[in-house]
Structures are given as C-alpha cells and as structure tokens.
Design a binder for these strands. Structure first.
Lengths: 218, 218
DNA sequence: TTTTGTGAAGCGCTTCACAGCT
DNA sequence: AGCTGTGAAGCGCTTCACAAAA
C-alpha cells in the first residue's frame, strides 16, 4: 500500500491547493515551478509516476492525457490525485480543547469551493472541552461535549481525526484517551512530542518549530 | 551557506524539541527512533554530519564527543544544533490579522523553558489588524497597531517574521505589503498560495492540507 | 556490552535528454 | 513552437558493517 513515496505525496498535497486555486485554467509545469521552487521536471515526473500507479492498479492501459500543450487541466488532474491518495472519502474530525486556538478552529470552516465530485473533504463533527462553562458560552457549528464523553462520541459518530489543542500539560494524557477511543489521526498543536501506538498517525503543527524553520532560511 | 540539506534540517528542528523535552537526561538514538520513526542510523549520521560542518567552519579539529554510552546529552547537543542552524539569535515576530486564529497566537507565548544560553528564541513584538475596534478590545502582551502603520512599525522594531492570519481574500495583498516592509519570513496560515519575491521565506500552515496529509496515512 | 561514530555500499529521487503530442 | 511524457543517467541520502569509546 505504501506505494507513493512520502516526498512525492507531500508535493501532490500542495499541488492540489495550487490546482484548486487555478479554477479551471490550465497551468503549466513551469508556472508551478515558479510558485513552489520545485523544478518543472520533478513536477512532471510526479504526475507521470501517479499515472503509472493508477494504471497498474486499474489494470487498464487506457492512456489518458492530463496535460495539454497549454499545461495541466485542474479538473482532469485533481480527481486523479484525490484517487491516488485515497482522499475521495468524506472524513469526520473533532477539536479537542476549546481554548483560544481550539475555538478558532471550530469556526474556521473550509471555503465552499466548487468541488468536483467525487469530493472527499472533511466535516467538523464535534468539539470537546473540560470546562462545561466554555461549552455553554461558545458558538459552534458542531455539537460540543465535555471530555468525559469523548470516547463515546468519537465511536458513535465514527470520528477519525482529532485536532489536539489542549494545554501542554494535558497533551499526552488526552492523546492516549483519543487513541483508546479509536481515533486514526491526530493533528498535534501542542509543543509536546507525543508517544502513541503506531496505529495512530500524528502530525505536528508547532509554532516554535515553524518559526525556527523560517529563521533558519533567513 | 546552504550547506545543510533540507531533509536533515527538518529532522534537526524536530530533534531540538525532543532534546528540550528530555531535560538533561541522556537520550539514545534508539529511543529517538521510537519517537520519530527515523532509523537510529539516520539520526547518528545527522549528528555526525553536523559535527563535520562545525569542524570545517571552525577549523578546529577538537574532537568533541556529544554522545556517551548512555546516549546523547541534551545540554551538549542543543547548543551545537542551534549554532549550526544559526538559531542563536533573538528574532522578533508579529501577528497580522487578529481574528480568532490571530488573537489566539497573540497570547500563546512559549513555555518558560530552562533555556541554556546562548538562547535565540522569538519575541512577539506587535500585532496588526484593520479593525480599530479589535485593537481596543483585545488584551495582548505586545502593542497592537492598525494595518496602515505596519510598514513603519516593522521597520522601527526590526521585525523579521510575520504570522499571516488575515482572511483569504486579503492574504496576497497583505503579504505583498509585508514583503515591501522588509519582512524576512512569513508563516502563512491562510489556504492561499502566496506569490512573493524569493527574498521572503514562506512556510504554509494550512489546516486542510494537514488534514489531508493525515487522511492519506490512515 | 551497549552505545556512538563513520567510511563505503546501496538505492531512490532528481535531473537530463529527447521523443511525442497538439 | 511549446508543452507534456518518460527511459536513462546522475547524485544525494539512507543503510550497512564495523571500528572505537566508555
């Protein structure tokens, strides 16, 4: 299954955003090079690789052309990427810890992009916090629950991903509860390095690390 | 100057967090492997590479040992990494756009870690928003200004990095103003793909892209 | 004996050069 | 003519195997 190398995956994910922003105007590999810094060769290779994977999977040798002499056509390429990355399924996520950061992510829905089917996408299904007071005050497009109901709610609604926005002190403990509840992936906004079973995918979004990464390039 | 490969840099940045969390208890490469998924070989090679760079730079052949039979000693290794990545300078940053997300980052200071000198670190120097109303309401550890003063303030306080938290519609325009004001790096929290002169380093933190990256691994 | 440290081998991604399409 | 598409060459990172230290 791990058929697409991590480097290529990351580029494809970013490429999706570029294609989505392009509307449906074709975009050339040279222009993508200007936006990303990757060489146009690399981009074409990535897409070529993608098509090879698809062809091998489907068994169909049906040569489809996703580019034109004017560049790549978003409406043709996007579904291909989505399918190759298995992003054509709708998934539910929740926000855990509704402090400043967590509550910000409660209301930051996604742009109502003209999504070409089959569109996967993500749906905010719940928010959790330890403070009952907060649950009553906050306005939210999704239902809010006290943390002790977390396991039950995650299971009932088949929530797969969690945004971990609790204070550092509670991070590891809360993450373990999420893992026990059967969560599949955690977006970790705390600076804590989480220790979890490999069945749970973790991705860190640490302000200090990001600032450092920028500072290094200055 | 671009002497440290990007792959290694990213790992070293993450390693810093691990070392910082370890207090001053030595940590073995095997344990780091368990926390990160990188092979212990890779970790040792990274550190070995780092020492080679330092040695070449300093000209000193003074063989320093940063590991012990019990593992790496954070207080020895951290300064080395900080120096190699040029993170031993203090830098100022600002938050642009004080909506839910932006105001969250106003108050999320860094943990008061027992920082071993020379510590670089980051200092929040200002916040900007277009709404004067918000500037008056918000509590902030740093002074807040209306956006039209952005250029002046960035220059006066030598602010190098900006957290871009404005609405998507204003992202490109605001980023260009930041570039014109002489900012060196932008942490882009909007889903917009910014187009800026190469003198400005950009790093994206896009919720949807992160969610997708997680979903791919599920 | 467990760990770091490192030249050398191996391999995977990037780049090149050119064919193919429109 | 300008772009995509792709085998093949090139190169940089990862892995291996083993020396050295404590």
């Amino acid at each position: 299954m791990e058929q697409i190398p991590a480097v290529i995956r990351e580029r494809l994910l970013h490429l999706m955003r570029i294609l989505e922003a392009a509307g449906d105007k074709p975009i050339t590999s040279t222009r993508i090079e200007g936006l990303t810094g990757w060489s146009s060769h690399t981009i074409r290779k990535d897409i070529s690789f993608l098509e090879a994977v698809e062809a091998a999977e489907e068994g169909s040798g049906g040569q489809v052309r996703h580019g034109s002499p004017n560049g790549y056509v978003p409406s043709l390429l996007l579904p291909l990427i989505r399918h190759a990355l298995a992003l054509d399924k709708k998934r539910k996520y929740c926000v855990v810890g509704l402090g400043r950061l967590g509550s910000a992510y409660l209301n930051q829905g996604f742009r109502p992009l003209e999504t070409l089917p089959p569109e996967g996408g993500f749906e905010l299904a719940a928010g959790f916090d330890i403070s009952v007071n907060r649950l009553e005050i906050l306005k939210s497009p999704a239902p809010l629950y006290p943390v002790y109901k977390m396991g039950e709610v995650i299971d009932r609604f088949s929530i797969e991903i969690a945004l971990l926005c609790v204070p550092s002190e509670a991070a590891q403990e809360t993450a373990e509860k999420l893992a026990a509840a059967g969560i599949r992936g955690i977006l970790n906004f705390t600076p804590v390095v989480l220790r979890l079973p490999p069945a749970v995918a973790v991705r860190d979004v640490c302000l200090e690390e990001e600032l450092r990464a920028l500072a290094v390039r200055i």
